[in-house]
Every structure is written in structure tokens, then in C-alpha cells.
Design a protein around this nucleic acid. Structure first.
Lengths: 258, 258
DNA sequence: CGGAAGATTGAAGAAACTCAATTTGTGTGG
DNA sequence: CCACACAAATTGAGTTTCTTCAATCTTCCG
């Protein structure tokens, strides 16, 4: 579970490249994610007001925490690039990963209820976030009904996707859980216009298992089974979905197999 | 899983009684739940505006649906009295109960993202809800920053409690799941000033199992085990928590037992 | 009181876990 | 660039936990 935040040459080089690209899209107004993120549905004037609020392009290197449980809620964070994991620690000391946020997804929404973060956010790869000071955001929402509505949609969508995970955890066998996990990632990548057949998983088998309520060995076995059945191809953490439809059918029929 | 919505004499008598009581507390302003529900933190004037919005005391008899998946989102509903279950049906036809809302809790929050309900809400006993037309509520939020903030807290709290269930589903054994379930109910009753040592469970073993990712026989066995260990006493669906601290310790140490 | 649904308990089976050995992948330093 | 060391992933064998199937008991209503 531990990851080093050490900055080696490779990481520095990689960040230099992304920072050059990023200079071309400094504002929500022309951000490629504006159709799936908070700005969805805003006009130019409204976008401008939101833009004034957002602190863009804070970098978080692989293994670094963006926030920790107990931290007071200052800002929500939208993933601009990269991949995160959010995990919570129970009173008994058990860790549970509750989400793997990717581009355009907000982190920290569960902190509003107590003004303090409940989850811990760690970058799984070198990443970039946009920070949105929450108090100022709430003030702006009152002025911009469309932004308010979109914010509510994102909050509501977070609940809905949590329910999706509950469905997975509560009703599925190990094989189906892994299949559903891969499809979920693929769908979310597809929704962002990214290639969704070949997925580079930024998380370990252990992290997948933790998320799905399985042990890492079981996850590995299920990857192997799906591979042997010809549904996927694996090459380390790179996973290709060969039979998208068959994989989806597998999830649909669920543990109902005759 | 099926329950009859048949209205027998007993039900009619019961409702007559509650309706008499209810006439004394017709508005949010003097509702006993205002400290845990949407009105928390509002002053008299603000309360009045919210009051004008809310359609109070819609009755839902045991077994009846308040809304179903696919229904367009008209109103959010706050439980005024009674107990509900919310279940979702996956594409593959599997049911998963995602919540057992009780007094002061909002239902339908996950519908905002798609303007249609995803869950199905069924009353587990004769119940009463306050309906809050969502479009009008959102308009009011812009005028009442405190109401807006409280609404966000409730949305955020829903996410947080969903994460709590994920933790249960993902990390706990059958025995701990049942223990955690009982404690959760007890805590929520306690937070409402109700007796929390003796709980009358309005849901069946099957429904508990569905919620916790267990089969009904396993749930029954775990009730028996907790009873044999002296932590609880059971008398049908009436359950008494005898050793509150021991039960909590059990959940804390989790599957870490030596 | 009688029937049906819900709950409990037992015994056998399946699924996932634990422990352990091996292989593969990754990053570091020679 | 290669070899080494360490972490991650895979695979196997045996065990535990939960489920399945089945019988019995209880509770709730009519």
C-alpha cells in the first residue's frame, strides 16, 4: 500500500511535457473537460465567474496525498489529468477504497457534511487537479442557478455511482466484480472520448481487491479466468477488452447462470 | 419480497391516531425533526418560506411504493414517520437494497443527476412523508444560503453514509456486518431521541441479508450467534442490545481477531 | 384455530481466503 | 546496456466462511 513520493528524473521530464500542453488550456472556458465537469451548461459570462474561482493545475505526483481524513474542507478538487484513489479508514483501522476518480470527477464531496475530509486522496500517477474553494463556490451557486443545478447533479451522480458499487459488492461473485470493474473503467474512459478498449490500470491488484471486497490473489485469478475465456487480454497492468459485449452479458446475467 | 398493500381495519385505526397527533405539528416550524432534517439552522422567516413549499403528511401504507425507478423526479421526500426501504434493480435483474431511510432522512437524492428515480421506495410500515418539489426547492436555495448549505450537507451526508456501507460490505465478515447493522440502527434511533436499546426491526431477515450482501439464513445464524454470546436478546423481530460496548468493540477490532 | 409466511437450525457443497512457492515486472546501480 | 534487487503478480494446495438445500419451528392474520 505504501508508495514513494520521490521525484526522479523520469517524473520531472513527464511533468515538463504536460505543463507545456496545459498552458494551452488554462481556463474552464476552453478546458476539454468542460462537458463532463462542473462547467457543463454554463454560458460565457457564467464560465468567467467560475474561472475566477478555480485554482488550476495543482500538480500531485504519484503516491502523494492531495488531502487526508480529518483535514478541514477548504476546496473541492476536480481531477484535471491523471488518476486518484480515495480510501477511508474505519474506526477499527481497516482501509476501504471508495473510488478511483479520473478526469473531470470531483473529490471531497463527502466532506461538506462535517466540514472535514473523511477520505484520503492519493494520486495513482502524476496528476493535476483544479481546486475550487468551497465557501466561495457556494456563494457563487446562489448567483448562478445553472451552476447550482450542475453542482447538484454532480453530488447526486456521486450518490448514484456509489449505489452502483454497492450493487457490485452486494450481489456479484468475484468474477463478475472484476468484469464489472473493467467495464466501469472502460465506460468512463469512453465517456471522455479516450480509447476504452485498452486500459492501463494505474492501481495494483491489491487496490482493485480492496475496492471490490476481494483479496489480491482472487483478483489475479479472475483476471486469469477472464483471459482464459478469451474476454480480455492482459499484459501486466495493461488490459485489453476483447469481447466487450460478452463481458457485459456476463455482468448482466450475473450469478444467475444455469 | 412481496408485501401486500391491503388496508385492513388495524391499519386504518393506526393511521387515525397518528393523524390526530400530526395536526399538532403541521409545519416544519414546529416539527420535532427540524434539528435533523432540511430546516436545520433556519430562522423563522426562512422556515416560513420552506414551509410554503412542503406538501406534508402524505401517507404511505406498509408495502406501498412511494416512487419507482424510472419515475420522473418531481419531489424529494423526507420521512416524517415510519420506515422505508430503497432498492435498485440492476440491468441483470438483481435487487439491492441501498438504504433503510427513517425519520428525518431524505429520499430521492440520487434522482437529481438524471431527473428520474433510480431507486424504488417502499414503506416497511405505515409511514408518513413530506414532499418537497425539487424545482421549487432549488429556486428557494438561491435565496436562502443557509438552506442551500444545509441541503448540501444532507447530500454530502448521504455520500458519507453510503461510504460507511461500502466499508461494511467490503471489509466485514457476516457476524460483523450484522453487528454493525444493529449498531447503525441503534445510533440513528438514538440521534432522534428515541429508545435505542430495544429495536423493532421493520425489515425481514431476507431484506437485512440483501442489504448486507448475505443470505437470509446467514443473517439468522449471526443473530443466533450474537444472542448466544450474550450481546443481544431477540424476540422475533424485536431485538435488544444487551452489551452495547462489546458489540461496538466487536465491530472495531473487525476481522483482526488473533 | 388453521394456514402461510418468516425464522431457525442442520448437513453438505461451493466460493473465496490463507499460506506458500514461483514468475514477472520495474527501477537502480554497476 | 545489463545485471541485480525488490515489489507485484501469478499459480497451487488446503482451510475457512458462506451458501445451498432441506426440515422444523414460530409468528402473524384471517
Amino acid at each position: 500500500m505504501k508508495t514513494s513520493g520521490f521525484l526522479n528524473d523520469r517524473k520531472m521530464r513527464r511533468m515538463a511535457v504536460t505543463s507545456f500542453e496545459a498552458s494551452l488550456r488554462q481556463r474552464c472556458s476552453n478546458c476539454s473537460l468542460r462537458e463532463i465537469c462542473l462547467p457543463l451548461g454554463l454560458d460565457a459570462e457564467e464560465l468567467g465567474k467560475l474561472d475566477d474561482l478555480v485554482k488550476r493545475r495543482r500538480r500531485v505526483f504519484a503516491g502523494q496525498h492531495l488531502f487526508r481524513a480529518g483535514d478541514p474542507l477548504q476546496s473541492l478538487a476536480a481531477v484535471r489529468a491523471g488518476f486518484f484513489k480515495i480510501y477511508e479508514v474505519s474506526a477499527g483501522g481497516h482501509e476501504q477504497i471508495t473510488a478511483f476518480p479520473m478526469e473531470g470527477e470531483l473529490m471531497g464531496l463527502d466532506a461538506i457534511s462535517t466540514d472535514a475530509h473523511r477520505g484520503n486522496a492519493v494520486a495513482l500517477e502524476d496528476s493535476e487537479v483544479c481546486e475550487i474553494p468551497f465557501t466561495r463556490l457556494e456563494a457563487l451557486l446562489s448567483d448562478l442557478p445553472r451552476l447550482q443545478h450542475q453542482f447538484h447533479k454532480l453530488l447526486s451522480g456521486a450518490i448514484a455511482s456509489d449505489h452502483g458499487l454497492m450493487m457490485v459488492l452486494g450481489t456479484m461473485t468475484a468474477e463478475l466484480k472484476v468484469a464489472a470493474f473493467l467495464l466501469n473503467l472502460s465506460d468512463r474512459l469512453g465517456a471522455r472520448g479516450q480509447p476504452c478498449a485498452i486500459i492501463h490500470l494505474p492501481m495494483s491488484r491489491e487496490e482493485i481487491g480492496n475496492y471490490l471486497g476481494l483479496k489480491l490473489e482472487t483478483v489475479s485469478r479472475m483476471f486469469s479466468r477472464l483471459r482464459d475465456d478469451g474476454l480480455i487480454a492482459t499484459e501486466g497492468r495493461k488490459t485489453e477488452i476483447l469481447e466487450h459485449k460478452a463481458l457485459r452479458d456476463l455482468c448482466l446475467q450475473g450469478p444467475l447462470r444455469a
